Simulated scan of single mutants.
Amino acid sequence: MEKNVGTKTLRDAKIGQTVKVKKLTGDGPVKRRIMDMGITKGVDIYVRKVAPLGDPVEVTVRGYELSLRKADADMILIG
């Protein structure tokens, strides 16, 4: 996926940072799966851990812990 200059994704967030979801990119079943996990526009995501090679990313969303692949984290635009 090509990112616009200045656009940050969840993959760019640092450990210990809380970010707000601005938009979900992607389409079809992948976007639906991310939304089914509780990640929707306007929700806060706390970045708990990032694995040594960057995959997966552990986050807290809506009070529960979740692991996301780098590819999925790239689809979540943050602000």
Rank of each mutant, 00 (worst) to 15 (best):
E2V: 04
L68M: 14
L77A: 11
V61I: 15
M35V: 08
G6E: 13
R62W: 04
I15W: 03
P56K: 01
G38K: 13
K49W: 09
I45L: 04
V61E: 03
D27R: 14
K8A: 00
K14F: 01
T18H: 07
V43R: 12
I39Y: 00
V59F: 04
M75W: 02
V59S: 01
A71T: 13
V47H: 00
T60R: 08
G28N: 12
S67Y: 13
M37S: 08
K23D: 14
T40I: 15
V50C: 07
K8C: 09
P29A: 15
M37T: 08
R48L: 14
R69I: 07
T7Y: 02
K3C: 03
R48H: 10
A73V: 05
V47T: 09
K20A: 10
Y64K: 15
R33I: 03
V30M: 01
L77N: 01
L68N: 00
D55H: 10
T9D: 05
M1Q: 13
V30P: 03
K23W: 13
T9Y: 04
D74E: 15
G6L: 11
L66W: 09
K8G: 03
G16W: 01
R32G: 06
D55L: 05
M37R: 03
T40S: 12
K49G: 04
K23Q: 15
K14G: 09
P52I: 02
G63C: 08
A51T: 00
V5Q: 12
G28R: 06
K41Y: 02
D55V: 06
D36A: 15
K3A: 13
T18L: 10
V21N: 00
K23L: 14
M35E: 15
I15N: 11
M1W: 11
R62S: 15
K49F: 09
V57Y: 03
R32S: 11
L68S: 03
